[in-house]
Amino acid sequence: MKVFVNRKEITIFTGARVIDAVRAYSAYSAKMLLKGAFTVFDRFGNMTEPDGRLTEGQILIIKKTK
C-alpha cells in the first residue's frame, strides 16, 4: 500500500504500522521517534502512536517533540 510521510510517497507492506512507514522513510526519523524526540501526526493534526496501523493513502507528518 501507499502512504505519505512528510509528503514523500512510501510503498509499504499491507498491515504496516506507523513505525514501519517511518523506518521506510528514514532510519534516523525512526530512531528519533522511538526515543520520543520526534512525534508523528496524522493529517488532522492528531498524534499517532508508532504502533498504530496504517490505512491506504494515510498521511503522516513527523515533527520534533515539543
Binding site: 506507523v18 496524522d42 488532522f44 492528531n46 498524534m47 499517532t48 502512536e49 504502533d51 498504530g52 496501523r53 490505512t55 493513502g57 494515510q58
Partner: peptide, 28 residues
C-alpha cells in the same frame, strides 16, 4: 481508525458521537 471514522461521519451525520480505535490516535 481515524481515517475510517472521518468518512463515516461524512456519510452519516446521524451520529452524535464516534468513539474510535484502531489507529492509536491520541485526540486531545
Amino acid at each position: 481508525g481515524v481515517e475510517g471514522d472521518e468518512p463515516l461521519a461524512k456519510a452519516m451525520p446521524q451520529f452524535d458521537l464516534i468513539i474510535g480505535g484502531h489507529s492509536h490516535t491520541t485526540i486531545t
